[in-house]
Design a binder for these strands. Structure first.
Lengths: 171, 171
DNA sequence: CCAATTCGTAACCGCACTGGCTACAGATGG
DNA sequence: CCATCTGTAGCCAGTGCGGTTACGAATTGG
């Protein structure tokens, strides 16, 4: 597998929900019902977002989570870094043979390439904000008729992101 | 965590080794000693590379693995796709609430962004070949003095890849 | 044909991460 | 005080990964 955990996806969902209910604090239970998970899972993720300064939380009656910034000042890269503590995207085998040229040098070379690839990925996330996500969701909710048509194919043209993103993968 | 498994790194190591010993078949045991792992682990990865047509393998006395293509015709994206069967880089929560606008539309929006990010990462891998890796390793092995200096910092300028890669992450 | 070598693969293990769940202490406001 | 809500610890089942052993199948050489 080795997919990035769904915490990023859930965190974006949470923030989009908070942006939707911008005025009032929202409880973890309410958020959990939208995500369809356990309130504790939501609180764990909200805790990470709080540590990153993206939301503010109040306990007690009438408490809950609220956005700490404007939705257009929260990028998906912020979210990614808030909930995914891992610094390296690719694992590299720890201890190759030190006696051969390959073994003693491959790690540095691989780390360089992998780091560049990771940065390219983060570059895409950096250019999408929670406000963008909210707009996309709203647009999709509006035109329900063909809302999920563009799911076909290999993530297709991603028409939904036109104007927001540069071409991205030139593969 | 959620890092991409070290199979990619090991597979590149294996292919770099085969490119180094271009003429003769190399046994899984020999490769394993360079990677410093178990021969079965190597055979599993070599099997995936064989399925992808990157190497050819012969059993029996004098057998082993050999490159099936020139090193400059094997990209790290080929390797990535050969050993990492996962099609999606980011997991998305499977079943958000269908009654609210956010829950019923967030998955498609997230999948679009995540797919674009994934493609950007693959675009970097596509531009590095096994031959490039071999050259980098050789260069590092030659000038041992300052070979690992450029490891400092946040993957720094990646001077080693200058001329091979476009700027990559514009974050 | 037989023996040595090597791959291919199944089976099992320990480790680590993930998400879901319960439980409870602590903070907050009426 | 009390109801509400967060924060967190703790446990569980599921899953993936890497390591290891074991054995059958293929190939080469005598």
């Amino acid at each position: 597998m080795s997919t990035i955990s769904s915490r990023v996806a859930v965190a974006v969902h949470v923030l989009a929900y908070l942006a939707w209910r911008r005025d009032e604090p929202v409880t973890s239970e309410r958020i959990a019902s939208s995500v369809n998970t356990n309130p504790v899972v939501v609180r764990r993720i909200v805790g990470a977002l709080r540590n990153a300064g993206l939301v503010s939380v109040q306990p007690g009656v009438g408490g809950g989570a609220q956005l700490a910034r404007e939705p257009d000042h929260i990028s998906m890269l912020d979210v990614y870094r808030a909930v995914e503590e891992k610094e390296e995207l690719f694992a590299v085998h720890a201890d190759p043979c030190r006696n051969c040229d390959i073994g003693s040098n491959i790690r540095a070379v691989l780390q360089g390439v992998f780091c560049t690839a990771h940065q390219a990925m983060q570059g895409v996330l950096a250019q999408v904000t929670i406000a963008d996500i909210g707009h996309q969701v709203k647009k999709a909710a509006g035109g329900c008729a063909g809302a999920d048509v563009h799911l076909a194919g290999d993530c297709g043209e991603m028409a939904a992101l036109d104007g927001v993103l540069a071409p991205g993968g030139r593969a």
